[in-house]
Amino acid sequence: MTESQYTPPLPGRASTQCFCCHSTDLEREWAATSPFFAQRALCRHPQAIMLIKCLGCGTRYFDFSPTKDELDRLYAGYRRSEYFVQRNSFEPWYTRAVNDDLGAEVQMQMRRAVLRDALEEHGITKHFENILDHGGDKGQMLRELRAKTKAVYDISGVPPEEGVIALDQTQIKEIPWDLILSCHVLEHLPDPQSYLEELVALGRPGTIYFFEVPDESFRSFGLSASSLQKRWIGWLAKRIFAFKVFDFLSTACRVKLRVLPPLGFVALREHLSFFSTLGMSRLFQENQLKILSVKIRASGHICAVAMKAAAN
């Protein structure tokens, strides 16, 4: 692959207004495609890209829209051996323990407890007829729920847990769902709005929805929007060891301190959007959902409970 194959700019998302609240009051700062994402999904070198922040609702999202083929390459064999080895080679802090702990039972127990508490908070404790975990891996979130039918839809094709059936895209449209879960899906999507429209179409008036996304809020400094920042990221992109060092420092400060330091940057690895509670509320209101609650729960994630409203 020649250097010229890396030079065209990456395709952007519609960036004139926020996809959550439709505000046009937007700020932009320079971020980067991580070496792992750039190599695995894009087959090119890392480069500077724009990160957009909506001043209306606080949602952030990359001004970049990966294709289906690029996403398929990224998530092929997700978190399995080849995925881990490639990612660890660029991100030494992404250890085997980190990889294996994602979705591990200790975390799942806490997340299931949050789901139970969120439903009970709104008096939703009944025995369901049909529940669906959309994008739910093996359906681990369904383990403690009572239902006649527990189903999962997931593109990974992994075998579901005992008591859970795996359905395809056609089959999930044929069942009247009482409860639909979507956990850690929205942040991975280039078009959350279209996904949400499809998900709402699976329900009927009165269907309950539970959403879960990471809380990845942070503050950044004015330098992040400067031409100096773009040149700095471009310089780092040609020096992978230096990129690794500043990527680690930037990520540690952003995750642990909720601050992006001067000359720090956000690297695109998997998450294309960083949601806020207000942004999620506005997004759901646009999609025929009555919001029961949207807040940061004990798991540290933003969780939303909503109900499909009757059509006007």
Rank of each mutant, 00 (worst) to 15 (best):
Lys148Ser: 15
Gln229His: 13
Ser226Lys: 13
Cys253Asp: 04
Leu236Ala: 07
Glu197Asp: 11
Leu196Cys: 09
Leu142Gly: 01
Val158Tyr: 10
Ser182His: 03
Lys238Cys: 10
Leu202Ser: 05
Gln193Trp: 07
Lys150Thr: 11
Lys173His: 10
His188Trp: 08
Thr170Ile: 06
Ser220Arg: 12
Tyr153Gly: 00
Ala242Asp: 07
Pro205Gln: 15
Leu260Gly: 06
Val164Trp: 00
Lys230Tyr: 10
Phe211Trp: 09
Ile155Val: 11
Gln193Glu: 12
Glu197Trp: 03
Ala147Thr: 10
Arg239Glu: 00
Glu216Val: 05
Ser250Ile: 03
Arg231Ser: 14
Val152Thr: 05
Ile180Phe: 10
Phe248Tyr: 15
Trp177Ala: 07
Lys230Val: 07
Arg239Ala: 00
Thr149His: 12
Ser227Thr: 06
Ile172Gln: 04
Glu144Gly: 13
Trp177Gln: 05
Arg269Trp: 07
Leu199Ile: 14
Cys183Ala: 14
Val266Ala: 05
Asp215Thr: 05
Leu199Val: 14
Asp247Glu: 07
Lys244Arg: 12
Asp178Val: 09
Thr207Arg: 06
Ala267Ile: 10
Ile233Cys: 03
Ala252His: 14
Phe221Trp: 13
Trp232His: 06
Gln229Glu: 15
Leu260Val: 09
Trp177Tyr: 11
Leu228Arg: 10
Leu228Ser: 08
Tyr153Met: 07
Ile233Trp: 02
Phe210Pro: 00
Ala166Ile: 02
Ser250Thr: 08
Gln229Lys: 13
Ala237Val: 05
Asp154Met: 02
Glu174Arg: 13
Arg269Asp: 12
